[in-house]
C-alpha cells in the first residue's frame, strides 16, 4: 500500500499543538465526568445495595434507562431536548453532564455489586459493635465493598474517557474532533489515526495497568 510508504511525520508534528488542545478538552470533560460518575455511583450503589425503599426503585429505573439506550442518543437528547424544557446548557456542560449520567449508571451497578458482595456476617458484626446503619456502611461495607468494586469501576471510567470521543458530534472540540478536522483538510489519514491511537491507547492502557496493579495490591485476604 503506497499510503503507508508515504507516511509523513511532519503532518503529526505540525498538528501537535492542535491535538494537544484537543487532548486537554478530552481530559477536562473526562475527568469531571469520571469524578462525578464515581459520586453518583457510590451514592446510588449504596441506596441499591441497602434496598432503601423508593430511592432504590428510582435508582434502578435510572440504571435500566441508561444501560438500554445508546449514549449517543442520550447526548443528542440532552443537546437538543433540554432547551425545549427551558434548560439552556453550553456544549461543555452537555459534554460532562452526558458522560456523567452514563458513567454514573454503570458505576451504580459496579458499586452495588461490590457492596452486595460484602459477607452478611461482617455487617452483622458491625451492628453488634453498636454501629448505626450509616456507621456500618462507612466502616464496614464501604471499605470492603469499595475494594471489591474498584477494578470494575475503573473499567467504567475507561469507557467514560472513550465515550468523550462521541462529543465530536455536538461540536465539543475534543481529540477526535480535532483530528477529524485536520484529516478533512489534509487527507493524511494514517498520520492522524496514528496520532489519535497513541493518545487514546496511552490513556486506556495506563488505566488498565492501574486496574491490574490495584487488583494485586487491594486483593482481599483469602479468608473473605
Amino acid at each position: 500500500m503506497h499510503v503507508l510508504a508515504s507516511f509523513e511525520w511532519s503532518v503529526i508534528w505540525d498538528s501537535q499543538g492542535a491535538l494537544w488542545g484537543g487532548f486537554k478538552h478530552t481530559m477536562k470533560a473526562g475527568v469531571v465526568g469520571i469524578v462525578l460518575a464515581y459520586l453518583v455511583g457510590l451514592v446510588l450503589g449504596a441506596l441499591r445495595a441497602h434496598r432503601i425503599p423508593i430511592l432504590n426503585q428510582l435508582a434502578a429505573s435510572y440504571v435500566e434507562l441508561i444501560r438500554n439506550t445508546p449514549i449517543l442518543v442520550q447526548i443528542f437528547f440532552l443537546y437538543y431536548g433540554l432547551p425545549v424544557l427551558g434548560i439552556h446548557l453550553d456544549v461543555f456542560t452537555v459534554a460532562w453532564l452526558s458522560i456523567t449520567i452514563w458513567g454514573g449508571a454503570f458505576m451504580t451497578e459496579n458499586f452495588r455489586a461490590g457492596f452486595e458482595a460484602v459477607p452478611q456476617r461482617l455487617s452483622e458484626a458491625g451492628y453488634a459493635l453498636g454501629f448505626t446503619r450509616l456507621q456500618e456502611f462507612l466502616y464496614v461495607t464501604l471499605p470492603i465493598g469499595g475494594r471489591i468494586a474498584l477494578p470494575s469501576t475503573i473499567n467504567s471510567a475507561i469507557s467514560v474517557i472513550k465515550n468523550t470521543s462521541l462529543l465530536l458530534l455536538i461540536g465539543y472540540p475534543e481529540l477526535t474532533y480535532v483530528a477529524n478536522n485536520i484529516q478533512s483538510n489534509t487527507f493524511r489519514t494514517f498520520e492522524m489515526f496514528t496520532a489519535l491511537a497513541v493518545y487514546y491507547l496511552a490513556i486506556v492502557w495506563t488505566l488498565s495497568a492501574l486496574i491490574r496493579f490495584l487488583e494485586r495490591r487491594l486483593a482481599l485476604p483469602e479468608a473473605f
Binding site: 443537546y79 437538543y80 432547551p83 439552556h88 453550553d90 456544549v91 458530534l169 455536538i170 461540536g171 472540540p173
Partner: peptide, 18 residues
C-alpha cells in the same frame, strides 16, 4: 463563534437565546 452540530441545532440555539 460557536459550532453547532447541524443547521437545525443552530436554529434552536437562536430560538432559545443561546
Amino acid at each position: 463563534f460557536q459550532v453547532v452540530s447541524s443547521p437545525a441545532a443552530g436554529v434552536l440555539a437562536v430560538k432559545n437565546d443561546q
